[in-house]
Every structure is written in structure tokens, then in C-alpha cells.
Design a binder for these strands. Sequence first.
DNA 1: ATTTGTTTTGAACAAATGTTTTGAACGATT
DNA 2: AATCGTTCAAAACATTTGTTCAAAACAAAT
Lengths: 213, 213
Amino acid sequence: MQKPGLETRELILQAALEAFASRGFKGATVREICAAAGQSVGSVNYHFRDKEGLYEAVTSRLIEEAILRHEPEPPDAERLSAREKLRIFIRTYLARFGSIFSGRDNGVRGMFLMREIMDPSECFRRMFSQLQSRQKDYLLKIISELTGQPVSKPEVMLSAISVIGQCFHFIFGRRVFGLLGFETGRLTDIEQCVSHIEEFSLGGIMAVTGERK
Amino acid sequence: MQKPGLETRELILQAALEAFASRGFKGATVREICAAAGQSVGSVNYHFRDKEGLYEAVTSRLIEEAILRHEPEPPDAERLSAREKLRIFIRTYLARFGSIFSGRDNGVRGMFLMREIMDPSECFRRMFSQLQSRQKDYLLKIISELTGQPVSKPEVMLSAISVIGQCFHFIFGRRVFGLLGFETGRLTDIEQCVSHIEEFSLGGIMAVTGERK
DNA sequence: ATTTGTTTTGAACAAATGTTTTGAACGATT
DNA sequence: AATCGTTCAAAACATTTGTTCAAAACAAAT
């Protein structure tokens, strides 16, 4: 009964994600989206009111799929050492960014996300900010525990940015200069990247907050 | 004689940069660009042949302005210690990313650049790649000198990515979660960011490549 | 002043694009 | 069986958009 309706809706959503990602809101045409979904021209207006409604649907779908799925704070976080928690945090972020930027769809979702980051819609801004602020607090807590410094210490915050920056760049960077110099082969092994970032960050955190030598 | 022509050409280029940055190639319309530049509809076709020609002109202009202007390898590099060279490298990259993403035009050039990174045009790909590969080699050399390890060592390359990743994220990150959690006030002092990234990176590099403990 | 070459303008045009409408097909309910 | 609401496809419509073109405006030189 509800099935046929939901199915074409789904087909359109998938086609729209790819179209919006690679060509932007105006660049993508509803005709092209409907054709890719194997539906007729009017179907977008029927299911999503208009092109803008479709865009909003795609946005919220992406946030749910690509971000909410990777939770950097495990349920049993209390039992783990700070170092283990940091490692899990790093792995989660690599996986998250990886799924967004190098996923099976050749970075289509990454493109869409980048567009939203550079010029966010209201819907996106709302969902994304509350998410990030929670996970930022968690990372600050880890670093604080790791060093014995209070979370309010500037060095703790700066270190958090350094950690996330590395995670982000190990995935995103492939796109920037990956093909154009660095060997990307070694970077495909996620666990090796995790180990590097963990070691590098521990060294960095200690150098910044720890004992003067 | 040539002056009046060059002036409107300039006006159109400026308006086009903003339009292309915020709405992409197809999203921006030549009518809107001409209106913003205070010129008539046909002017784009006269000065740049067609819309695509205008886009190429904007692209090459951006690369020259925002990237070529910041050279991370100073002329007297030979005289400096590896640590000093690293510091200059970091400062240069922060300045470069800063000028692109937080410049006076409210990140308009950053938006344009991001679009090109995610979905590069041929013209952009060519210019950007040769640039990056040269500067990547320079950073590898710095780290190699810093640690005594050969440039071919995987840890050297991974460290380079970590360094650049931090630089990139200290600027770009403001856009991601800057306003939504982290205090951005402290990050506006470039020299403080340089100091942090330098210390953090030295600690990280040593931890990754240096003596096992 | 007239001519010449360049620049600018705005109307006109053809192609494309978003939206609406219409009617057919289908399943459920009476 | 008849009716009704939902889903969908295709045609029709109105708008937008890139481009062209001919005339006007302008600047410099003769």
C-alpha cells in the first residue's frame, strides 16, 4: 500500500544526492534527477513539493547516514584508559570522514557536505552544530585526562584542534594533493593512519602541555 | 585607450568571483554577474568570449593571487636551522589559508577554492598540482633534516601530512565548528597558532620517528 | 570635423528548466 | 461492482538563461 510510494521516493532521493553533490543546487536539474531515478518529470513536485523540498530531504538524510552512524564515545568509555579513548576517537573520526569523502560513491557525499559547510542551509547548520559541540567536549575531556590539565587550558583546546585537523586532513587531503605527489597507497590502511595520528598526537600533546625540558 | 576596457573587465571579474563562489558555475547567471558589476548583459561575451571563458579567467586569477603570493621557502633557507624552516613553513601556510578562507572578502575565495578541490576544472588541476608537489618536497626535506631520517621513510611523509593538516584545519576549522563551540578569539592571533603547531608538530615528529622509549 | 577602431548597450532569440495540469493505472474500501 | 484516494507519467506552460546582433557611444587619429 505505502510501498510503491516510498520506493520511488527513495530512488529520487538517491539520484538527487548524486546530482546535488556533483553539480550543486542550481546545477542539478529535476529532469536529470528524475531520469536517473527512472521517474517522470513531475514526481519531484509530487513527493517533495518542489526542488527545494527535495534538497532539504537530501540534507537531513546525509547527516543521519554519514555522521550519526559513527559515535566516537563508546558506551563503556569509563573502563578505558585515556589513551585508548583517544585512539577510538581518532579511529572513529577517520572512519567518519572516510565514509564521507572516500566512500563507495566516490566522494559524492563529501562534495555535498563541503558545499554545506562553505554555505550552510539553515537545516544543516542546526543539526551539525549540536553534534559537533558534543563531540568536541568529549575530546577536550580526553586530553584533559591525558595531561592532568583542566579543560579550560588553552593548550588543551589547541591540541584538540590539532587532533581533529589531522584526522580530517588524512582523508580530505587525498583530494587536495593526494594524487599529485603523496603516495596514497599507504594511506588506504586506516589502522596505520590511526596509529600514526595517535603517536604523533600523544607526542604533540605532551610537548605542548607537558613538562618543559 | 585600453583603460576603459580593462576597468569593466575588472568589475566583471570581481563580481564573477563572488557569484561563482557562492553559487557555482551553473548556479551563477551572467545576468546577475553583469548586474552586480553594473554592466550590461552582453559584456561578458564581449570580454571573455563566453561564460566558460570568464570562469577560467577567475580561476587563474585566484591561484595567482592567493597562492603564488605566499612562498614557504625563503630565499636564504640554507642559512636557517631545520626548526626555523619548519616555523616559517607553518607560518606561510597559515597565512595562505588565512588569506583564502578568512580574508577580507569573508571567505569568498575559500568557497571558490573548495569547489575546485572537490570538483576541479582542467585549468585548476594543472596549476595547482605543480605548485603543491614542489612545496610538499620542501616540507619532506625539512622533516628529514629535522630527524635525520631519509625522505623516503613512511613516517616522514605521514608527519608532513600531519603538519599540513593542522595548518589547514586551524583556518578551515573555524568554518566547520569555529563559531559553534571553540573560542575563536584565541585563534585570531596567527603567531600564537604558529607557536602551537610548531611545538605540537615537533613533539609529534619526534614521537613518531625518533627514539623509542 | 570626419573617420576609424573599440567598447557598450539592450532588445531579440533559442534552448533549457521548474512547475502545473490532466488523466490513466492501481489498490483499498464500501 | 462501484467509488475513492493515491501514485505516476506525459504533455503543456511560464520562466529563466546564455548568446547573438545591430545600433549607439566613445576615444583617438587624421
